[in-house]
Amino acid sequence: MTRFRRPSAPSRLPLPPLAAQAAGFALTRLLRRIARRKPAILSRLGPHGGARFLIDLRDSPLLLLMEPGARRITAHPRRAVPRHDAAIRGRLPAFLAMLHGVEDGDALFFSGELEIAGDTSAVLALRNALDDAELDLTEELAAIPGRPFDGWLRRASGFAARQSGLALSRQEAMR
């Protein structure tokens, strides 16, 4: 398993005005697109579809609150932690590796790369639902602007993944 490098600490950088609103708007749009294309995610969440998940990317200045039932993601400054039912904490590379099937979620948790708190059932349901969905964020993002930007975005993502070591695409697609 990859031991992820500790990046610099952008979580302490000052935020530009409206950064949280812009991030929330973009991520909500992405979430709604994924929910339309992969409805099984919500059905797998079952009774946890209404849970509020705090996503704490330790290398980000913003906290994310994901509400799958409302199909909404909002971003919040670290000083204003929103109410939530469950929290998942870790660095961006670990989240991306789990999301794209590069690393096993349990292994990331056993190794301390990811930590959870709150409603453990809801976190397990979310992890299992996302794992089954075989998401590919590069493909989801590329589909939003459509042609001719999709090809450029895929190439840019591939270049960024090689430079950064981040898992920006689904594991099976990377082979």
């Binding site: 099937g101 349990d106 292994a107 397990l124 992890r127 299992n128 794992d131």
Partner: peptide, 10 residues
């Protein structure tokens, strides 16, 4: 069976 597809594949 409670593990991810990454675990299963490896």
């Amino acid at each position: 069976r409670q593990r991810s597809r990454a675990y299963v594949a490896q």
